[in-house]
Design a protein around this nucleic acid. Sequence first.
DNA 1: CGGATGTATGACAGTTGCGTGACAAATCCG
DNA 2: CGGATTTGTCACGCAACTGTCATACATCCG
Lengths: 227, 227
Amino acid sequence: MTAVLVIEDDDRIRLALLLALEDEGYEAVGAATAEEGLRDQRRAPADYVLVDLMLPGLDGFECIRQIRRDDDVPIVVVSARDDTHDIVAALEAGADDYVVKPVAIKELTARLRALRRRARSTVAVPEPVPVLAFGALEISPDAGEVRCAGRPVPVTRTEFRLLCELAEHAGRVLSRQQLLSRVWGYDNGDERVVDVHVGRLRQKIESDPANPKHLVTLRGLGYKLQR
Amino acid sequence: MTAVLVIEDDDRIRLALLLALEDEGYEAVGAATAEEGLRDQRRAPADYVLVDLMLPGLDGFECIRQIRRDDDVPIVVVSARDDTHDIVAALEAGADDYVVKPVAIKELTARLRALRRRARSTVAVPEPVPVLAFGALEISPDAGEVRCAGRPVPVTRTEFRLLCELAEHAGRVLSRQQLLSRVWGYDNGDERVVDVHVGRLRQKIESDPANPKHLVTLRGLGYKLQR
DNA sequence: CGGATGTATGACAGTTGCGTGACAAATCCG
DNA sequence: CGGATTTGTCACGCAACTGTCATACATCCG
């Protein structure tokens, strides 16, 4: 049975979605807050997550980010707002799709099926591990490995996640705030933490840490990883 | 470079999409019919396909099915119709996403990025960075980079923000007050600050700073950036 | 022509942003 | 339990940036 977690604070809408999904043959579970949904998903992971954006307490964007930190489950935003900014922000946060309420249940399930085709099968085939290359620097997010000129470089967990985050947005500046939020999960905090870890990372992956080639600083903007 | 194939019979819409995608850093190719699009995709496979549903001859649904027979490329339907039946049918035919015209280019590219995360093909392709071009002058807000005739130009944070603000409203005059407010966040203050920074920018990006080509002064009005 | 207004630019001092080494708390691991 | 590793915080110092000012230049208009 395919399980769907619905995170939506409006009782009527949540109930309607749950019933409709069950009619379609899914096993549907509801949560009224992001906190509740996150707990449910950690305890008993569903195959899909539907999430509203406007939630009391933790909002939908943050909820998506938190799920994505350790779960690759397909996430569909179901929101009343059809503002481009919201759509872009939700997808950037890690959502796979965004539909505007009210949505036809047939469309919703069709979108879930479309996502299922793409969702990485949990075990199944041993996929070739994707490698992100930056000159001599190679990063395998899936294998948890960093190599520099062919030789493996030992990096700590935080360093690795920082590097992956930068690699995933290769060529783009990420502000300290963004990194703090995506790597550490802090919404506000001392940004200097980022500096320190960037510095340590540079010691390991740059041939001349004082003149970084790949992991560069953009004064006043943040850091970026480039070729 | 990431390539996108746009299959759309309406010349104006197709052209608009192609230009917008190129601004966002993609290499965009157009096709006016399904047949033409299928041939293009077979000959030189793009990384993404955008397809309209209402096409002369072979329609969009059939086009999707034919592509899917031997190609796993992410397909996004861009259609004027928002009928549930069409959406379901397109997704069933093998499309990955469905957006309704008119669509904001930012949303479209965000959806492409979301798809890229799922469509892990063998090679990891980094997302292209959008570039705003003014003759030889290239500005990439996302990368925090300014290039002049291909050469990177080091600009400070304030200069960069000022330039981005002007670039975003290319061709329009922005008063000192507007710039002061948008770049500096001041609601009132000494407007001379703007002059100074415009001057410094000119030193860096204009070949003859005394006779600026792009960053021009409109006496009594303000500044504007032009091609 | 000549004053008035608007703009460009060089110099400078105060401020900010960043890299770094040191250190203590936290965590991992045998 | 105890050592090793990792992590976050802090303070210091340098380099780069910013805003202000004074002065010089350009343009407008009677």
